[in-house]
Amino acid sequence: MAETKTKPTEASVDAFIAAVADPVRREDARTIRAMMERITGETPRMWGPSIIGFGSYHYIYDSGHEGTSCRLGFSPRKAEQVLYVLTGTAEQQEQLARLGKHKTGKSCLYIKKLADVHMAVLEEIMRGALKHMDERYPR
């Protein structure tokens, strides 16, 4: 079975964010980091080379594959911020409808710039995602 590549590292979160080339994306990353840190109460860590994660949980799939991942996380990519916060719940669907300009993937929320979204709704989404994680994977 393949080993998970996205593991916590000792790389500096501050240095990673400081190296984000686009100044708007860099400042947005600082804002997201502060929000996730406040919501989770966790110190951020780098997970692999490009994900800033908060907390951790252990999972086991029906296939037997298991690993550890961050409870909440994000990555300031070249084109947009990628937030790992989607749960697929009906409540979250309603929140996404109120969020503002964004795209979604399976478990990812894509935001080009924070100025395009309602920050209070983004915080609701993050809090709901953490609650979902805490219920599914108790600490």
Rank of each mutant, 00 (worst) to 15 (best):
M1K: 13
M1N: 12
M1R: 12
A2I: 13
A2Y: 09
A2H: 13
A2P: 12
T6E: 13
K7M: 12
K7F: 07
K7W: 01
T9V: 09
T9P: 01
T9N: 06
E10Q: 13
A11H: 11
V13H: 04
A15Q: 15
F16E: 02
I17S: 07
A19I: 04
A19M: 07
A19N: 13
V20I: 14
V20T: 09
V20Y: 00
A21L: 09
A21F: 06
D22A: 10
P23L: 08
V24E: 13
V24L: 10
V24K: 11
R25N: 02
R25K: 13
R25H: 08
R25D: 01
R26F: 03
R26P: 01
R26I: 01
E27T: 10
D28G: 05
A29Y: 01
A29H: 03
R30M: 10
R30C: 06
R30N: 11
R30F: 10
T31I: 14
I32V: 15
R33Q: 13
R33M: 10
A34V: 06
M35G: 04
M35C: 05
M35V: 12
M36T: 05
M36S: 00
E37R: 10
I39G: 02
I39V: 15
I39R: 02
T40R: 00
T43I: 14
P44N: 06
R45H: 11
M46T: 02
W47E: 01
G48I: 05
G48W: 02
G48Q: 05
P49I: 07
P49W: 04
I52A: 00
I52P: 00
I52L: 06
G53C: 07
F54L: 06
F54K: 01
G55R: 00
S56W: 04
Y57Q: 03
Y57I: 05
Y57H: 10
H58Q: 14
Y59R: 03
I60V: 15
I60N: 10
I60A: 14
I60C: 10
Y61N: 15
Y61T: 13
E66Y: 09
E66K: 12
G67I: 02
G67L: 05
G67H: 02
G67M: 02
T68P: 00
S69R: 03
R71A: 11
R71I: 05
L72W: 00
G73S: 11
G73H: 01
F74S: 02
F74C: 04
P76W: 00
E80S: 15
E80T: 10
Q81G: 09
V82C: 13
V82W: 06
L83D: 01
V85P: 00
L86T: 03
L86D: 08
T87L: 07
T87K: 03
T87P: 07
T87S: 11
G88N: 09
G88L: 08
T89L: 12
T89F: 08
T89N: 11
T89H: 09
A90W: 03
A90L: 14
A90F: 08
E91F: 07
Q92W: 02
Q92S: 08
Q92N: 10
Q93D: 15
Q93A: 15
E94L: 13
A97R: 12
R98A: 14
R98M: 14
L99P: 00
L99V: 07
H102V: 04
H102I: 05
K103M: 11
T104F: 04
K106G: 12
S107D: 08
S107V: 12
C108R: 06
C108S: 13
